[in-house]
Amino acid sequence: MLAMGSVIYNLFFDYTLRTVAIGTATLGMVSGALGSYAVLRKQSLLGDTISHAALPGICLAFLLTNSKTPLVLIVGASLAGWLGTIIVTAIVRNTRLKDDAALGIVLAVFFGLGVFMLTLIQKMPNANQSGLDKFLFGQAAALLKRDIQTIAVISGITIGVMLLFWKEFKLLTFDPAFGETLGFPMKIIDLLMMTLIVLAIVVGLQAVGVVLMSAMIVAPATAARQWTDHLSVMVGLAAIFGATAGVTGAVISSTTSGIPTGPVIVICVSIIVVFSLVFAPKRGIIWRKY
């Protein structure tokens, strides 16, 4: 009980922990909410590809501007992530390769290029470069106030646009052809949705890193789906699950020595998934068995 109390105390009054927790909660919330759409559109692994594809963008943004301002890096990452999705589409549309191969190609090659550039940067003489690999593995514990500000603004915009175009995104996800006949330009709505997902991923990279980002997109949404049959509840729950995992991860890794935040967040969210699959009413495994 005492330990619990001190955790809550720290959450409110320990400046570092509070900063980190706010950051991871926000990231978890955004990726959970937007991830719902990725999962419903059967694009779960696109998140994995986008997160890997972002790396060369981050490196290039740094090489061009010599700045590590979060905003600059996020813009670079988003553009690269975006380019990656476009290439995936181009490969699928013009060759006989399927989604899986196209996603794998972009993922591995962009990431390889990113690593190549990263090692070039690390060997550059002006040593302003440390910290880029924060995106690689995520360093939630190293989130600063200015990072949080950037994250908050981007997350706010992302969630705001999602709520604003709620009806249009629902149409896009459920029945885009029908939406087109209603007069909505579904391609543009699709583009908008894709941009939001890219933003959610790129922002999240700082906390959990490239490899684990796919879980942040897929897991909260998958867990949330089990509890509800309403899109709004699903998106809301996914956001809550993501945020919960974010805060829990931040707290656990701050109270236990030598445990990195990102992986703990992913473990938390995976536990939520397993729990949901087993115990959720109506859909859950136990419910269906008995």
Binding site: L40, K42, L164, F165, K167, E168, K170, L171, T173, F174, D175, A177, F178, G179, T181, L182, G183, F184, R225, T228, D229, H230, L231, V233, M234
Partner: peptide, 26 residues
Amino acid sequence: EVDWDFPTTVQDVVMMGLYGQLGWIR
């Protein structure tokens, strides 16, 4: 042509027919 496992209700799908008349955002 659609995924019937989509989390939504009958009434909600029926109302989609009005989305065009509602226009953007409303």
